[in-house]
Design a protein around this nucleic acid. Structure first.
Length: 399
DNA sequence: CAGTCTGCTTCCTTGATATT
DNA sequence: AATATCAAGGAAGCAGACTG
C-alpha cells in the first residue's frame, strides 16, 4: 500500500495531476486498466526508481484479465506506449497549457516479469498522492463499459467540490471518448452514454453522480454532474477498506472500550478475529465482576498475547457460550457480498418464480410488451435491462 | 450452433417553444 | 388561441459478436 505523502504546495499543480487520467478516449478499457494498474504498482517508487516491475500473473489478476493470451496484453501495452495523453482538458481560467507524454516510456516482459518505465517528466507528475484516489482497482474491475470509467474519472476529482460545474456537451463527448457519429444527436449520447454510465457508476463505485442539463431553448447545451459520496461504497475508497470494516466490528469496539489502543486492536483482529472477540468478551466479564484490578486494556493484552485459550463454559457458573466472529461477520456483510447473493438468488429461480416476479413487475407498471410467459423473460433488450434492475432491487430488499 | 448481448438505426410519442 | 416545429426520449428491431 502506498504511503500517503504530503500534498504538494500549489493547488494548480494538483489540478494538473488529477488531469492525468483524462485519457480522451483513444484507449480501450483494457488499456486504461493497464495504465492504472501499472501506476498503482509503481506509486511508492515513482520518484526513487526509474524502472518498475510486476509479475505477469499478478498483473493479469489485477486487470481482471483471465486469458492466457499474453499477446493481447503485449498489444495493449504497445498501444498504451504509443498513445500520447494530453493534459489540458478542463483547465481553469480558460488557459490552454498543453503538455503531453506517452504514458509508458519503456516496457518489457521477460521470464514472467513485466518491467516498465515512465518518462521523468511524467513520473514527477504522477507522484502526487491525490491521484491515488482516482485509481481504485476495485472500481476498475467492475465497470463493464468504457464510458462509465471515463465519466467516473472525470467526476471523482470533483467529489470534494460536489459538482463538475457546467461543461459544454461537446467537451463531454471528447472527455468520455464518445465522438462517434452516432452520438451526434444528443438523445443518443444521453441514452447510450450518459444514462448507462451514470447507472453503472452509481451501482458499483464509491460515488453517486447525477446529471443536470442546461438548455438553450429546447436544446441541451451544457451538462454538469453532481458528485456525492456513495455511503454504501465509500469503504472501498482506498487502502483503509479492511481497516474500516474492522473499526466497525463488534470486537474492535469492545477492545477499545476496554482501553486497548486502536492499532493494537486492529492488528489482533487481523491476526485472529475469533480470539480477539473472545478476549474482549472474557475481559469484559472479569471487569464487570471486579476480578481485574486496574488496567483492563493491559489485562486484555496479557490475555491475548499470553493465554492461548480462554476457558469459558460450565463449571464457573457461566453457561452461555461466547459468541464467535461469524456472527459479527454476518452483520458486517458488505454491499459486494449482498450483490453476489442477489445474483445467485436470481440464478437459482425456478420458472414459476420467474413468472411470478415478471407478473409483479408488469402489475407495478412494467410495460411487458415483449414478455415471454413460457420462459418468464423479456425478449427486448431494453425491457430486459429494466426488468433486471427492478428484479435485483426486489430480491435485494427481500433478503 | 442456438441463445444472448451489444451497438446501432429507425420510427413514434411527448412536451416545450415559435409562429400564425 | 390554435397550429406548426423542434428536440428529447421511448421503443422496436436488426446485425454482428460473444458464449457455453
Amino acid at each position: 500500500m502506498p504511503n500517503i505523502k504530503p500534498l504538494g504546495p500549489q493547488a494548480s499543480e494538483l489540478k494538473k495531476h488529477v488531469a492525468t487520467v483524462h485519457v480522451s478516449g483513444e484507449l480501450s478499457l483494457l488499456e486504461r486498466k493497464i495504465v492504472n494498474v501499472l501506476l498503482l504498482n509503481a506509486f511508492d517508487d515513482l520518484l526513487t526508481k526509474k524502472r518498475h516491475t510486476l509479475p505477469v500473473g499478478i498483473f493479469c489478476t489485477m486487470l481482471g484479465f483471465d486469458s492466457k493470451n499474453h499477446d493481447a496484453l503485449k498489444r495493449a501495452l504497445l498501444k498504451v506506449m504509443s498513445t500520447p495523453i494530453s493534459f489540458d482538458l478542463l483547465h481553469d481560467g480558460g488557459k490552454t497549457d498543453w503538455e503531453a507524454s506517452p504514458l509508458i516510456a519503456y516496457a518489457s516482459i521477460k521470464n514472467g516479469l513485466c518491467s516498465y518505465e515512465y518518462s521523468d517528466w511524467l513520473a514527477g507528475k504522477l507522484a502526487n498522492p491525490d491521484i491515488y484516489t482516482l485509481i481504485n482497482i476495485n472500481v476498475q474491475r467492475q465497470f463493464s463499459g468504457g464510458y462509465a470509467l471515463a465519466l467516473y474519472e472525470n467526476c471523482l476529482r470533483f467529489k470534494r467540490t460536489g459538482s463538475t460545474g457546467w461543461i459544454p456537451v461537446e467537451t463531454w463527448r471528447r472527455l468520455l471518448g464518445a465522438d462517434a457519429s452516432m452520438y451526434d444527436e444528443f438523445k443518443h449520447f444521453s441514452a447510450e452514454v450518459i444514462k448507462k454510465a451514470v447507472k453503472e457508476i452509481n451501482q458499483v463505485s464509491n460515488i453517486v453522480v447525477s446529471p443536470e442539463y442546461k438548455r438553450e431553448a429546447r436544446r441541451v447545451v451544457q451538462i454538469r454532474f453532481l458528485v456525492e459520496d456513495n455511503p454504501q461504497k465509500s469503504m472501498y475508497d482506498n487502502e483503509d477498506e479492511e481497516q474500516k470494516s474492522i473499526r466497525e466490528s463488534d470486537a474492535f469496539k469492545r477492545l477499545t472500550r476496554l482501553g486497548v489502543g486502536d492499532r493494537l486492536a486492529i492488528s489482533w483482529i487481523q491476526q485472529e478475529p475469533d480470539r480477539a472477540l473472545q478476549t474482549a468478551i472474557y475481559v469484559e466479564e472479569r471487569a464487570k465482576s471486579k476480578q481485574i484490578r486496574g488496567n483492563a486494556g493491559g489485562y486484555a493484552r496479557t490475555v491475548f498475547e499470553k493465554a492461548a485459550r480462554i476457558e469459558v463454559g460450565p463449571g464457573n457458573g457461566q453457561t452461555e457460550s461466547v459468541p464467535t466472529l461469524p456472527a459479527v461477520a454476518e452483520a458486517d456483510t458488505s454491499a459486494e457480498e449482498r450483490s453476489r447473493r442477489t445474483t445467485a438468488r436470481i440464478k437459482s429461480m425456478t420458472l414459476a418464480e420467474k413468472q411470478k416476479f415478471a407478473g409483479e413487475y408488469m402489475a407495478e407498471g412494467g410495460k411487458g410488451n415483449t414478455y415471454q410467459p413460457e420462459t418468464g423473460t423479456f425478449k427486448n433488450a431494453l425491457e430486459r435491462t429494466a426488468y433486471t434492475s427492478w428484479l435485483r432491487a426486489k430480491v435485494a430488499d427481500g433478503q
